[in-house]
């Protein structure tokens, strides 16, 4: 397996230009409209609002203003996290979602049958159906470009290096230095998803944030969907046992009652 590759997104230098969104759409030939419907919000610079089957990159605009001159903009270019333990890959019933030699997570569109289990399994709301293919789609971390030694289109296009592409180990070192630098300047910077011992075994697309993860639309403790499997399955089995026993015992008892009333023989 080749070295694990990914993104480090430093949100403090994102200027919200959306060059990454455009580069992603252009390289991956993603449509502007969702099944013929224009879904631009029209009420914010954040026109596309979310990641989905036709938006594999999304620049999030967060306005934190108490008054006209008292506040700040937070911007973050969001993308699939290429989780080390990926919920989508775990539940996919067709084997369409695979882990590549770069430790990234890719949906094979020719295998996916559009059951949408991966959409509900992803804790970040990254995946959705692409109306053109009828299959689930998301960022591939430009798997086609990686295979020929090119960097992903979004990070290539990013004019401020907010999106940095590289080997995960190297990106982590770079990210920690940047956090130390910001902290020395009094900025409350934290890394999200950089810890390999953290949730989901770490994220191969991790972030530098200056506010709580929830502010950026990121869950604080993302979990694998199968965390619930044993408990939910166990309770179902217990409930099945109770109902089965109630049915058998009830049936036998009633028959015995009827037979004793009628003076019948053995049950």
């Amino acid at each position: 397996m080749a070295e694990a590759m990914g993104f480090f997104t430093d949100t403090t230098v994102c200027i919200g230009c959306k060059a990454c969104e455009v580069a992603c759409k252009e390289w991956n030939q993603l449509p502007a409209e969702n099944g013929g419907v224009r879904e631009l919000s029209g009420d914010s610079y954040d026109n596309t609002r979310k990641l989905d089957g036709i938006h594999w990159r999304h620049v999030r605009f967060i306005e934190q203003f108490k008054g006209p001159y008292d506040g700040r903009w937070l911007m973050m270019s969001d993308v699939c996290k290429h989780c080390v333990q990926a919920g989508c890959l775990e539940v996919c019933p067709t084997g369409a979602i695979v882990r590549t030699q770069f430790d990234t997570v890719v949906i094979q569109s020719d295998v996916c049958n559009g059951c949408r289990a991966c959409i509900a399994a992803c804790p970040f709301g990254v995946i959705d159906i692409n109306p053109v293919s009828g299959t689930a789609q998301k960022c591939t971390l430009c798997y086609d470009r990686l295979q020929v030694g090119l960097e992903p289109a979004c990070s290539k296009a990013c004019p401020t290096d907010s999106i940095q592409f590289g080997a995960i180990a190297e990106l982590r070192t770079r990210a920690e230095k940047r956090v130390a630098q910001l902290k020395s300047q009094g900025v409350a910077a934290e890394l999200y998803g950089a810890d390999p011992g953290g949730p989901l075994g770490g994220l191969n697309s991790f972030y530098l944030l200056v506010d709580k993860p929830e502010v950026y639309g990121l869950p604080r403790h993302p979990e694998l969907p199968t965390t619930n499997l044993a408990k939910s399955g166990g309770l179902s089995v217990a409930s099945a046992a109770v109902l089965g026993l109630l049915a058998i015992v009830g049936l036998r008892k009633r028959r015995m009652d009827e037979q004793s009333r009628g003076g019948g023989g053995n049950v």
Binding site: G87, V91, A117, A120, A121, C122, P123, P222, E223, P225, T226, N228, L229, K231, S232, G233, L235, S236, A238, S239
Partner: peptide
């Protein structure tokens, strides 16, 4: 199946199967 997702309600408790 619903519990083994990351969706509100469905994954917030283990009782849906039962």
């Amino acid at each position: 199946l619903l519990s083994v997702t990351n969706r509100p309600i469905w994954a917030d408790g283990p009782w849906l199967g039962a």
